[in-house]
């Protein structure tokens, strides 16, 4: 249940970093819900593909 609190807080923080909300998603899937799992992963993949690569554009060291 800690994840249920951590992820919303992290998402609030990532918004301050200007990171698209869709890049992080928390969902719950039971071990018996294979179809739903596949569907969520596909949705997430499509979403990220739509957003394109993330460029943090941080300090010069990592450029």
């Amino acid at each position: 249940m800690k994840a249920a609190r951590r992820i919303p807080l992290m998402k609030k923080m990532l918004a301050q970093f200007g990171i698209e909300e869709e890049r992080v998603r928390l969902d719950w899937v039971s071990a018996s819900e294979g179809d739903r799992f596949a569907q969520l992963v596909n949705e997430m993949t499509e979403e990220i593909r739509r957003l394109g690569p993330f460029s943090g554009n941080g300090g010069k060291a990592d450029d």
Binding site: F17, S55, G56, N57, G58, D63
Partner: peptide, 17 residues
Amino acid sequence: ADSMLKRKSLPQGERRA
């Protein structure tokens, strides 16, 4: 500056190489 993200994302088009 030392964090993994280092800064707020710059708007598209303003990103330095």
